[in-house]
Simulated scan of single mutants.
Amino acid sequence: MRRWNNRRNSRWNNRWNNRWKRTLTTVALAAAVVTGTAGWAAGNGQRPVTGPPPGSEAWRADTSLGRALPDPAHATPREVAAFFRTLTGAQQRGLAHRHPTVVGNLDGAPVALRYEANATALRRDARFAHLAGHGRRILAFDPRGRGQVAEVYGDLERSRHVAVVVPGSDIDAGTYDRPTDPYGTPAGMARQLRAAAKDTAVIAWAGYTTPVGVGLDAATGDLAEAGAARLTRLTDGLAAVDAPAPAVFCHSYGSVVCGLAAPRLKAGDLVVLGSPGMRAGTVAELDTTARVWAAKDPSDWISKVPNVQLLGLGHGTDPADPAFGARRVPAADAHGHTGYFAPGTQSLRTFAAIARGEAR
């Protein structure tokens, strides 16, 4: 009996030791994500911009129409759309002139009216007035924090297909369109996708507070949680104005945002590229009706990031791993972490086919 107990204790100790070693390994890998080994750089802690848009208090106090205006904090995009349908054109334009930062960010408001409101808001803003250029279609602009912006390439009101580009770290209203990084910003990605899929309206959506660098913020899901709520409202707003369900393209940390938003996201396709993980172990765990696609090129440094999730650190399984269950986007000829939308690549051609509903 004593010998049997010793053998049993020995087996138990071995299992415990193995489990403990695996735990320590996972902790070490997660720590590597945070501290900058495995190719990641240090970052600064960010506080997400949340809540209704600036100017909401004055909007709520406006009684010029003889009735309450929809509360930006609580009204759904469908309720907003229904409200604006009861107004004359003059009444709509009057609200946009008096409350441009509210109307410009109000999902469910008429698209052209939002463009007009945001042009007004941008002309009044010293930091971002350059975004009010002639012919630009700014769907959202929030000057708070580092600034957030969404720009439309194409005709959102008439296009048969719609796509949304969700960026990763280091993107805000000042950096979402960098000439020195033509394929690595949401504006650059949107332009390339629009050129490859000409009947598609593409939204470059820098609409959440992104991590700066890839330190602790990039290794956790806090900013992604806040971003997921804003992304969900965007797609709710598109549905409220009868736009087609979009294909959503999620780059790097943006794929964490998309993974958390997936169960509530009104999207036909969900495409992740250069992803550190989606906070899900498989496609089934995303609980989405959208088709899920994944791209990762061989030279992307994101492959060096450990695909772990422990104590809130890391983002889990690599979506490009066949075991995850996503559809594969060929990306062998893309280069680096920001080359997926480069002209002539297999990945861009496949993205265009997905956006147009032609990929299978």
Rank of each mutant, 00 (worst) to 15 (best):
N5C: 12
A38S: 14
F83N: 02
D287Q: 15
H130I: 12
W40N: 13
R2F: 10
P48M: 06
W16D: 00
D142M: 12
V202K: 10
A173W: 00
A352R: 09
R327S: 13
G147T: 06
H335V: 15
N307G: 01
L310A: 08
R328Y: 12
R291I: 07
R127M: 04
A245E: 04
E57M: 01
G45F: 07
F128Q: 00
G184V: 12
T180W: 09
R67Y: 05
Q91L: 12
R15H: 13
K266T: 15
A331M: 04
T175Y: 00
G221Y: 08
G104E: 02
S10A: 14
V202S: 10
E57P: 00
H74G: 08
T282R: 14
N44T: 15
A197K: 07
R98W: 03
R15V: 14
S275M: 06
D125T: 03
R230P: 05
H335R: 15
R98A: 15
R8V: 15
G184H: 06
L223W: 13
A195N: 15
R230M: 11
P263M: 08
A173M: 09
V308W: 08
R328I: 14
G135V: 10
Q148Y: 03
R3D: 11
A58G: 10
N118G: 11
G43Q: 05
G104D: 01
N14Q: 14
A331D: 01
T220A: 09
Y183M: 07
Y176R: 11
V34W: 01
G316C: 02
R194F: 02
A219V: 09
A90I: 03
S56M: 06
Y208P: 11
L270I: 09
A119F: 03
G237F: 00
A280P: 06
A334C: 14
D321W: 01
R19V: 08
V257N: 07
P53R: 11
A280Q: 10
A332K: 15
T235L: 12
R233F: 02
L139E: 01
A323C: 04
A262Q: 10
G154Y: 11
D297C: 13
H251G: 04
N17V: 02
G89L: 06
L106R: 08
A218S: 12
P52H: 14
R146N: 14
T185R: 05
I203Y: 03
R146W: 02
Q46P: 04
A38H: 08
G184S: 12
R2I: 12
T210E: 07
Q92G: 13
N13V: 07
A226F: 07
S10F: 13
L273M: 10
I171W: 01
R124G: 07
G325S: 09
P167W: 01
L122Q: 00
R123E: 11
P330F: 00
P306E: 11
W40C: 09
T63M: 05
W12H: 11
A150W: 04
P182W: 00
C258E: 04
F324G: 01
D242K: 15
D222G: 04
A247C: 09
N118Q: 03
L231A: 08
K21Y: 06
E151M: 15
A353H: 03
G339D: 00
W59A: 04
T35G: 02
W293L: 10
T200C: 05
